[in-house]
Simulated assay, not measured.
Amino acid sequence: MEQVQTDMMNKAMYYVVNEMFNAIKNATGVKYFAETEGITKSSVDDIITKIRRFGQPSIVGDFSVVSQLNDFAGFQAVAGDASSTKLPQSVMDEIRRTGLLNTYKGSSVVELPNAYNLTELNKAGDNFKTYLPEGLLFFIPQGKKSPLQVFQKGGLTSMNGNDIITGTEITRFDMEIGAGVAKGQEHQIGLIRDTKYELPQI
C-alpha cells in the first residue's frame, strides 16, 4: 500500500513536469525553447542570456542533462586553439566531489532527483523507466512569481471496504491535482529538450 501511494505521488509530479513541457513547447509568440541532440553550449548560452532578464535563473534537470554542462566549464589556455581547453582546479574539485558543476555563468545548476520505477521497463526493455522524464533542462528565474501553477485539493485520501462477492478487503486511493503554465507567460521559463531521450508522455 505504501508503494501505491508513492507511485501516485510520483505520477503526480510527472504530470506537472509534462504539463510544463507541453505548455512551453506549444506556446505561440515569444518562447525560449530548443530541441537539440545533446545539450549544446550555444543553446544553453542563448537561453541563459534571454531568461536572465527576468532574474538570475536556476538550471534544473535530470542528471542526464545537467551532467552535460560539465563539458562547458573549461577555458582555452592558448587563444584560438580548441585542443588546449583546460579546467581550473576549483572546477575539477567541484566535479570530483559532486559529479556536477554547482554554477554555470552565474546560474545555479540543480539536479532534479529522478529514481528508477522498478515496476516498469523502458521501451527498449533494457532498463527501468524513471519516475520523471529525462532529457529536459529547465531555466527558471529566481525571486519572482512563477508562471507555473500547481493546485492540489486535499491530500492523498483512501477508502476501505469489503467486496460483497469475494469478501476481500479493497482499498481505494484518490488524489486531485491540476497544473498549468499561465497563458502568455510561457516565455518566463526556458527549456531545452535533448532529443536523445523519449518525449514525456502521460
Rank of each mutant, 00 (worst) to 15 (best):
154 G>W: 13
126 D>V: 06
18 N>S: 14
47 I>Q: 01
149 Q>C: 05
198 E>N: 12
133 P>H: 05
76 Q>F: 08
98 T>K: 14
169 E>A: 15
128 F>M: 08
51 I>T: 02
56 Q>L: 14
93 D>N: 14
38 G>H: 03
88 P>D: 04
9 M>A: 13
35 E>F: 09
97 R>H: 08
155 G>A: 08
139 F>Y: 11
30 V>H: 06
33 F>W: 09
90 S>K: 12
124 A>M: 05
60 V>F: 01
69 L>M: 07
125 G>Q: 12
9 M>V: 14
56 Q>P: 00
200 P>G: 00
24 I>C: 04
9 M>P: 00
115 A>E: 13
75 F>S: 04
120 E>C: 05
169 E>W: 05
103 T>V: 06
5 Q>D: 04
199 L>D: 11
191 L>N: 13
99 G>W: 05
154 G>R: 03
93 D>P: 01
141 P>H: 12
182 A>K: 15
62 D>R: 02
181 V>L: 04
115 A>V: 12
69 L>T: 03
86 K>S: 09
152 Q>F: 09
188 Q>N: 10
111 E>Y: 03
114 N>P: 11
182 A>F: 14
136 L>V: 00
114 N>T: 08
53 R>G: 08
124 A>D: 13
24 I>A: 01
175 M>L: 12
57 P>V: 07
145 K>P: 01
34 A>Y: 09
172 R>N: 13
201 Q>G: 06
200 P>E: 01
158 S>A: 06
72 F>C: 02
32 Y>D: 07
25 K>C: 05
66 V>S: 03
118 L>T: 09
181 V>H: 01
14 Y>C: 04
90 S>I: 12
9 M>I: 13
188 Q>P: 02
55 G>S: 11
12 A>H: 02
127 N>T: 12
18 N>F: 11
127 N>H: 08
